[in-house]
Design a protein around this nucleic acid. Sequence first.
RNA 1: GCGCACGUAGCUCAGUUGGUUAGAGCGCCACCCUGAUAAGGUGGAGGUCCGUGGUUCGAAUCCACGCGUGCGCACCA
Length: 1154
Amino acid sequence: MFRAVKTDVRFPDQEESILQFWKEQGIYQRSLEQRAGGEPFVFFEGPPTANGLPHPGHCLTRAIKDLFPRYRTMRGYWCQRKAGWDTHGLPVEVEVCKELGIHSKEEIEAYGVEKFIAKCQHSVWRYMQEWERVTERLGFWIDLSQAYVTYHQSFVESVWWSLKNFFDRGLLYRGHKIVWWWAQGGTALSSGEVGQGYREVADPSVYVRFPLIDEPHTSLVVWTTTPWTLPSNQFAAVHEGIDYAYCRDVETGDTAIVAAQLVEMLSEKIKRPLTVDKTVPGRDLVGKRYRPPFDFYESKIGEQTGNLREGGQTVRQWRVVHADFVTLDSGTGIVHLAPAFGEVDYDVLVAQRELFHDGNGPDLLCAVGPDGKFTDDAPEYRGVWVKDADRPITRALRDRGLLWHQEQYVHDYPFCWRASEDPLIQYPRESWFIRTTSFRDAMLENNRAIGWHPEHIGPGRFGNFLESNVDWALSRERYWGTPLPIWVCESTGKMEAIASYDELCSKPGIRGLEVWEQAKKNQPDLADDLKVHKPYIDAVTYDSPYRAGSRMQRVSEVIDCWYDSGAMPFAQWGYPLRGTDLFESQFPADFISEAIDQTRGWFYSQLAISTMLFGNKPGQIAPKGNIPYPHPFKNCIVLGLMLAEWYESKDGKQRFLTEEEAREALGNDFVHKTGKMSKQLRNYRSPQEIFDRYGADALRWYLFANQAPWNSILYSERAIRDSIPEFLLRLWNVFSFFTIYAEIDGFQGPAEITSPLDQLTGDELAKAPSYRPVPERSELDRWMLSDLAATCRTVIERMDRYDSYGACQALHHVVDALSNWYVRRSRSRYWAAEKSSPDKLDAYWTLYESLVVLAKLIAPFTPFMAENLWRHLTAGLKGVRESVHLCDYPDGSFAQADTLLNTRMDLLREIASLGRSARMDAKLKVRQPLGRVEVTLADGSHIPWLTEHDDIIREELNVKEIHYASGSSPYVSYSVQPNFRRLGPRVGPLLPKLKQALASASGAQLMDEMSRDGKISLSIDGQTIELDGEDIQVRFTAKSGWAAAQGKNGVVALHTELTPELIREGIAKDAIRIIQDLRKKRQCDFTDRIAIEIITADAAVREAIDSHRDFISQETLAVSVTIRESGGPLSDSESIELADVPVSIALSVQSREK
RNA sequence: GCGCACGUAGCUCAGUUGGUUAGAGCGCCACCCUGAUAAGGUGGAGGUCCGUGGUUCGAAUCCACGCGUGCGCACCA
């Protein structure tokens, strides 16, 4: 027995109660248990960092991560969903520093690393509740209780194990890296952080002469915007292919060498003529020695030479070298290289060293300390902050006649995002690297096997990134991160890697474990996982195997937290110390998803680690006896970025308003803005607001159904709200319609069935006595189920291709068909008086079954709505599955997909739509019956079928008669066009003329010729062309002067003359509508009987009502309809216009039973 | 500067291997229908398919060069 549901739904309230139900009944757990032993569908959760609040963008990733596992689970796969949290890294440290009001590493050290780490560990969980709430509220089913956490000991040990593997294979090495360095804070910044801090500044721009040693009175001229790097100069770079000019500078009497192409420009700049003596190619300059601008180093090592690998000797530095990056865009075409302060400069140094025998190459010259101040190497400037040294250095150059020219240069330069007055400098730091470059080809091969969605990511952005791979700079000179598990011998410098805490503890002569033990004793609630972190792990030392009496001490660095996330495929299980079975059964992933910003983040870190670690090469791990590419993930949906929208005043003074706020404050005088979501700008609203107002399903449906997931998507409250009626509300209204009538008629549904129920499949429902086999039902019923079955197959096919957007389109389409055609066309069947007529029961069963199938079909997309429907549809039934999420996904096997029927029904709908359009043109409202319509179709083959369904069109269009034709027709004119696709290859250049010929001929004649001869002959440019039926396309046009409308497949024309009888019927129908309105106004029950009294002076109206009295009574459940010409005012009456005349009408309820 | 993507109606987006009248939803306006009614339907207005050139009988679609936007990378010596 079904109970009518209210139509004024509050989806958010319903969702909250469903969440409660899921929780109490452990539905998620049971959905998993039920599939245990099924084929695994492996999902990896890319760990979010819980260090900040979740924002709308996270809802998108979490929604899509939920969709596919839910879908696969219903399809029978076993899909575990282990949550994870990314917990390490600089952002956590920064958060803690803010809290403590400190900045620099010195301040952290002063505060105490031990206390600092403990704070970091706590800080990680600060927003955990918000994260869990959003996750749950969105309906993201994931096992939060089993979440992996990157700081946990088991995770850290897995990471150690993989690093030891790399170390032992020689893939982990120590080298130098030029980093963006925050000197005041004593730390390097990641490229993301650097990118945040760019600012336009004016720097000094100096042109400096480097005198050549072997050519008197001749100088290279170089340009730099960082004069403070000049004392550390090591080379001057030219490009071999560029021509350089020796120019006489009249003022100095010196010869200046600059790029030939720039002579003129430079001459203007220095405002004096430069006379070119000769021009030489860059390669002729390579090897020439020059005098550096400062002699701090030259005075000590100026004559230092080294032995070249190719034989011979040369001076180590202060030579001209070739470099590819030299261009003529700015400067002089000769580049000053200070390898300590530039990445490309450093690369040149490394390349130069390669030329020499080991130990013979140039050392790195660096006159600046990590604090950004000059060291003893440059005594003149010792202790001066580099930026403050620009002026004195420039002055010194001028004094010594080396300053050729000086100006200001405006450019963007990075500053520290945490201390906006501190400029960053490039600075060399010792760093640990992973030799990813030697796996470049393997990574590319692995990448080619991955199913990227969209496809272009693979060869495009991601592939390109792999092509330009450089070794992974792994180490960070910070505190809160996975410690690099390498111990160094204090006397020999030899190193070894450690793979676990136990391995460490078993080392001979182990000492320092007590530091942790003591800390734990003092503070028993300290998380045990901290023992593998700084500072405790740093205290652990052991006997060196390399020299008796020496100790092994850990290096001080922690690692890049991207490595943590990339290691999660195995580290989430603690593999290989723990979880071997789990890892092997859950690797590789079938599906992962993140937004495009993870290309160089998680997508790369996973691929790099997996490619290097797992395989058949010596030293690699081969779980399950090797794993073919791709691994560690097979499919990846790369989501677009979510954009914020806001409103602001036209002058931009009031920003980041909601639409409501803007309307209130500014009237209509505001602009709509969209842009990147930004925490700082606070230009987005909390997802919770959406959940509370519209519900999670509304948000999910908006995210899934509005565009392909890789397009960027606007987080727009209005757009989310607007997407509700088209799907969720429409479906809910259909369901509500069903319950209203099922309650009135006492439709039992599956409650009739005595045998055990399970998922309410067609086979189960067929056991109900009143359930008739589908083939015995009306065409409309068969069509609906066939359309639904076809939709099931379409959705499955698309979801298997990871095309969630396409699947949503199919769902949208079928809900529209159900609501706007099936229910609309079936209404009268539900109103039918005979409660147990087979047709009425068929209508109920068809609608019921459709709703059951839809509940299952939409379950992965809008899980709340699906559950809500399911719970109502199965209320009171015994044995049926408690949750729709415990059901199998419908595969459409309940009905044949009848494509012919579908085509015909589409045609029928088109005819109805055209008829309504024609009525509109003729200004004939649908309530006015018409005598006849003429339907002319391009293709006559469906006419017999359509004729059988006259009743539908007659009712839709409110006409008495309908006539179909396919031949010539007085309402239609034809135009014939060539079938371009077919004829293009055949006649090619003649096509335009052929088109012309067909257009100018009479369409009707061509049609006649075609039907007589089966072909048309045309002569064009002397060539005879024969066209068969498929070579032409016939286009229909309604002839003007008729109330007619044309569509793709035909024309619908109306007979518009009205007989007195038709007019009377129209009036009666108007009367019915008015009475129905009154019933509603009086809040009558659907089944209340009423008495009607009508008073009007108009004889035509009286006659119309009188002659249709029975019809009116039947439609309005009236026991009596009284008509009077005049009389005293009726009590409780309403005065209304009917057929343009005044009418007074009274309604009284007679009985409320039945 | 380099790479990738995108550029189609007021907004958000579809648009199959090139086929000649470019679609949908929303919004706006008008009308209609209505015992699902805080729904539903029909129509209208609104497009140099970013621009230029090319290939072709035919280009929103393919090619080239630009312009603009987003993202990423690099550079700013």
